[in-house]
Write a protein that binds this DNA or RNA. Structure first.
Lengths: 210, 210, 210, 210
DNA sequence: CATGAATGAGCGTTCATTCAT
DNA sequence: AATGAATGAACGCTCATTCAT
């Protein structure tokens, strides 16, 4: 028995045809753009449709409601990051892999800082199927490659904190206007590797040169 | 971009009389409570007034609009934290001071996680006079007590990152349900002191026992 | 535990002040007028508000939704009829009482035929607290005054059928344009007393002269 | 009042081919089913088309609009009843014929009470070519077979009232859940023959045994 | 000052209908 | 013919804000 009155949050139709897929993409782009530029207060189905250049009726053909659009946006962004993170994690040396992953996170958050922050908040409200667990799993695997667990912080917690630290630093950088990517990357490396060295002192972790 | 029709965001009247100050406080308490328990969707002027036990008209006597309430809330919370941070910074040993300050931040975010996150987001939208600058100043002063500046990261940046790291870790902890304060504090210490050790290697920074 | 997702159908505020009571009355009058003249398809909250000369917001101050207006209308009409029926039932001679009650029904349905029919249908959809049970009770009491029960149709059924017959005849009369009240009354008397004579043959029921 | 923009209400095409006729039938069946089971609020062209298994485009090939479907439904039901009534009227003895006709009406209304009531209302709104006139004509003919006209109610009026009474009683029976067909028939006989006896006292009308 | 009734722009959403394919 | 994506007017309703009392 399905939960009865739960509003529909899944997209309404699989975009089978190319035309449809494009419409979906246009809507999501418009939604992202509004959220990013004008904030949540301007984020209405009508404005999204108008900006997307489709009628409000069309929008509702593809999404059962406003929240469904937000969720699709969250998942789209999530998937994008997960893929990049996954690729970065394939680098042989675990430290290099970690650096590459941090780089991905930095770039992502720098790219659309306002969007990323709003989606984060909506994520906690809507609780969609979360891409964060995938990221954590990948990160955890990378950490396991080398870090001894001779500490009372398990790998999962280490992974969680690394993500948290990265997000904290990038978010704040985003609030300030002019941060160079190189600068940000260096600080992230300090923060992440510094944390790991403290939290897991038995293993030697060397600073990465950036 | 011109700024026509900038809405009034400052409180309408300095609460000169005790009665007025109390009304303002009641309204803010109601606003905080609603934001915390029901989220932004229930955060309406009518709801706030009802919960505060004042008429909607009275609410508008003290605040020129909804956003003004939010800003007052942000500033109230900010002031509260600033005071606690200030007090903690008075501890003689700089490391102990830093630990105490971290403790304040952790407690604050743990205390009302939902409220803190929503206010953070609104802060970036409304851009009120920011209490963060004060916190940064205090933190910078503490760091200057001991940390050599023999690094290409200036003290201000160090301070910013410490705040960022702290917020990142506490925010994520808030998203998960059951985090003990002790656990959180330990991880924050690792993150902060680990970062400082990396970013500023010439000075010996020793881990704090918690 | 109250039924959780049932929409609010009771009026939102008791019209304590004279001003409010008047507003409620104006809204109901407008609603009745629209239903009567334009039918259900034009029966929207916005049109009701416009016709009533109040804002849509005011309308929602007094009624939690569209259906609540309809129900209030049903109950208002119901109460009006019940009162008249009650008064008629007080006539000493039971046949005269019955004739008077029929007269009330005829006048009521003739007065606003379209309105009465639409409200009947909505009544079956919304199932509000029904004034019909009161009417049936009164009618049953009148029938019990004289009619022997030596038949397999109990008094309640007799009452139900009398109401049904009355409604059927008046409804159809309403569909045709020009029916004199006297003519209608005579036919109703024939139908009701004829039915009773058949259904309850042991008691002598004499035709009423009209 | 001029009648500009009178919408097309007649079916768009005579279903010349068998395939077309079948499609029309399928659509009408779907419409009836939805109206009956879910009420008018779910009665939308899209829903009908989906349930009928045809595209919304096809639906509009056969009907010029939503109301046209409703009218077709009304006429279909009407025709069905007229045929049955016609057949019943062929019975030699006029009383038996009348009883059989009442039986038809009872069965029809009992069979799909919700549908019948909604269609009745729509009938008064849309005012299609009415099948009721045919029923009245048949009924009038039956009554003329035996009833003297020595009364101030003409045959037509008698016929109208018989129909009205029948509809009133069956409608109310439909509102209550559990009515046996036999019970209903008996009460209808009482009502109809009782009425006739009163309205037309010079002719002896005897009760029918059921 | 306090009140709360009144306002109406604007929201999320539906659905009858059209039309390019 | 048949399709179903697209349309947009209109719906029910909310809520920030005003103002007469």
């Amino acid at each position: 028995m399905p939960s009865p009155r739960k509003k529909q949050l899944q997209p309404r139709k699989r975009p089978a045809q190319a035309r449809s897929a494009e419409t979906v993409a246009v809507i999501l782009a418009a939604a992202a753009h509004i959220l990013e530029r004008d904030g949540y207060s301007q984020y209405s189905t009508n404005t999204i449709a108008k900006r997307a250049g489709v009628s409000i009726g069309s929008l509702y053909q593809y999404f059962p409601g406003k929240d469904a659009i937000t969720i699709a946006l969250i998942q789209q962004e999530g998937t994008r990051v997960v893929r990049a993170i996954e690729e970065a994690s394939l680098i042989g040396n675990w430290q290099d892999a970690l650096i590459a992953m941090i780089d991905v996170a930095a770039r992502h958050q720098i790219a659309r800082p306002a969007l990323a922050r709003i989606l984060d908040l909506e994520e906690s409200r809507l609780q969609p199927e979360n891409s964060k667990v995938e990221i954590l799993a990948i990160l955890e695997a990378v950490l396991k490659r080398r870090l001894s667990n001779a500490t009372h912080l398990c790998h999962r917690t280490l992974a969680v904190d690394v993500v948290a630290i990265t997000r904290g630093v990038t978010d704040m950088a985003a609030e300030q206007d002019d941060v160079s990517l190189d600068d940000l990357r260096h600080r992230l490396d300090c923060a992440v590797f510094g944390y790991l060295a403290r939290a897991c002192p038995t293993c030697a972790v060397f600073p990465a040169e950036t």
